[in-house]
């Protein structure tokens, strides 16, 4: 389960919409071990592509060092799919290198609604998890929990090249 503040989700969706039709990407950092995303860091998509994203390696070094200095870790790593569903591609699985992170995908293929889904990707195995949006600004107890259930919860892509 990913619990994330509505203001952060709104910022991620705004970033994805801004960069559409290119894919947008970024990180939400949080205190080490807290599993709580608190600091939204939009990243450049160095690939500037509609079908591929890649962190700029120098920006990533800077951001990862900054998280280290602040005793933070990447709690959420997000990117958008701009013409397809919010489900990890084989490429996403091959590259998933943060076993502790929630991989959040936003699909902006529909102009009016966003599909937001979250996954764990460990050793090539995708496990979907519910997203709990917390409305901290209004009422910390007022939460909305949902998960899109149209695909199996676990898919094994058998990434033999890793």
């Amino acid at each position: 389960m990913l619990s994330i503040d509505r203001s952060i989700i709104d910022a991620i969706v705004a970033h994805a919409r801004r960069d559409h039709p290119d894919e947008a990407c970024g990180v939400v950092a949080g205190p080490v071990g807290s599993d709580t995303p608190t600091r939204h860091i939009p990243m450049d998509n160095a690939a500037r592509s509609m079908t591929f994203y890649e962190f700029d390696s120098m920006e990533q070094l800077r951001v990862w060092r900054e998280m280290d200095e602040r005793d933070e870790e990447p709690v959420v790593i997000y990117h958008s799919h701009t013409a397809t569903e919010a489900y990890p591609s084989r490429t996403d699985v091959s590259f998933a290198g943060e076993p502790g992170a929630h991989y959040l995908l936003v699909s902006t293929r529909e102009p009016d609604t966003e599909e937001i889904r979250s996954f764990r990707i460990v050793d090539g195995v995708i496990t979907e998890e519910p997203v709990k949006i917390v409305d901290a600004a209004v009422d910390p107890n007022a939460v909305q929990s949902y998960m899109f259930g149209q695909s199996p919860a676990t898919v094994d892509y058998e990434c033999s090249d890793r």
Partner: peptide, 15 residues
């Protein structure tokens, strides 16, 4: 870890 990915495998392979 390099952070990368995207919607389509073939485009990624080309990249």
């Amino acid at each position: 870890p390099a952070v990368a990915g995207g919607a389509f495998g073939f485009a990624a392979a080309a990249a």
